Amino acid sequence: MDQQTNDLIKNEIENNEVCLFMKGTPDAPQCGFSMATSNILKILEVNFKGINVLENQNLREGIKVFSDWPTIPQLYIKNEFIGGCDIVKEMYESGELKKLLVEKNIKHKS
């Protein structure tokens, strides 16, 4: 991955408490997994930034290298990689996601 892409990813993760690298945007997701993950964040009323990886091929490939995770979407909360759709869904259903948001002091619907 080139330095510019690496810097872009780091910058987004460091400057946004909750950051979702996804296909499409939160208002117009372009894949079911991205839609499901952004919907969970919307249900919890979490303020998050969605980054559309489809706009930039380097970003689309770079985020997979950065996280060492093969799929998109990818959720980061306060600089920590949380996981993809299945993990976020599991954490939401078990209550772990809410617990994490409380621990990381992220405003959400309780």
Rank of each mutant, 00 (worst) to 15 (best):
N39F: 15
V46T: 08
I51H: 04
S34D: 06
V88E: 05
N47R: 14
F81H: 13
I77N: 03
Y76L: 04
T71D: 05
A36Q: 13
L54Q: 12
T25G: 06
I51A: 03
M35D: 14
E80C: 11
I77S: 05
K64T: 08
G62I: 02
D27R: 11
E90C: 12
I51C: 05
P29M: 04
E90N: 15
F33N: 10
I77T: 09
I77L: 05
A36V: 11
K89D: 14
V46Q: 11
D27M: 12
N79Y: 12
P73K: 09
I51P: 06
N56W: 06
L44Q: 03
M35P: 00
K42L: 08
G50E: 01
I72R: 07
G84W: 00
E45A: 11
I82Q: 05
I72K: 08
I43Q: 13
E93M: 14
G32W: 00
G62Y: 00
L59W: 01
Y76M: 06
N56D: 14
F48K: 02
T25D: 09
L54I: 08
L75Y: 08
I82M: 02
L59M: 01
E61G: 12
S34V: 05
D86E: 12
V53G: 03
P73L: 07
I72V: 14
E61H: 13
L44T: 07
N58M: 08
T25H: 08
Q30V: 03
N58V: 00
L59C: 02
L54C: 11
P73T: 07
N58Q: 14
K64R: 10
L75F: 02
N52D: 12
N56A: 03
P29L: 04
Q57W: 01
E93H: 12
L41T: 02
G83L: 11
P29F: 03
F66C: 06
C31T: 00
P73V: 07
L44V: 08
A28L: 15
F81G: 05
V46N: 11
S34K: 09
D68F: 12
Q57C: 00
N39D: 14
E55I: 02
Q74G: 02
L59Q: 03
V53R: 06
E61S: 14
K64S: 02
S34R: 04
P29N: 07
N52T: 04
N58S: 14
N79V: 13
K78I: 10
L59R: 03
V65S: 13
R60N: 10
V53D: 03
K78W: 01
K49A: 08
P26Y: 10
K78Q: 13
D68A: 13
L59G: 00
Q74V: 00
N47L: 12
V53Y: 03
N79A: 13
V88L: 06
K78R: 14
P29S: 04
M35H: 15
I51M: 07
L44W: 11
A28W: 12
L44G: 06
A28C: 14
N39M: 15
S38I: 01
A28T: 15
T25C: 04
P29T: 04
E80T: 15
T25R: 09
D86M: 10
D68V: 10
L75T: 10
I40V: 12
E80Y: 00
P70N: 06
M91N: 10
G32E: 04
V88G: 06
Y92G: 09
I63C: 04
S38M: 09
A28D: 13
P70L: 03
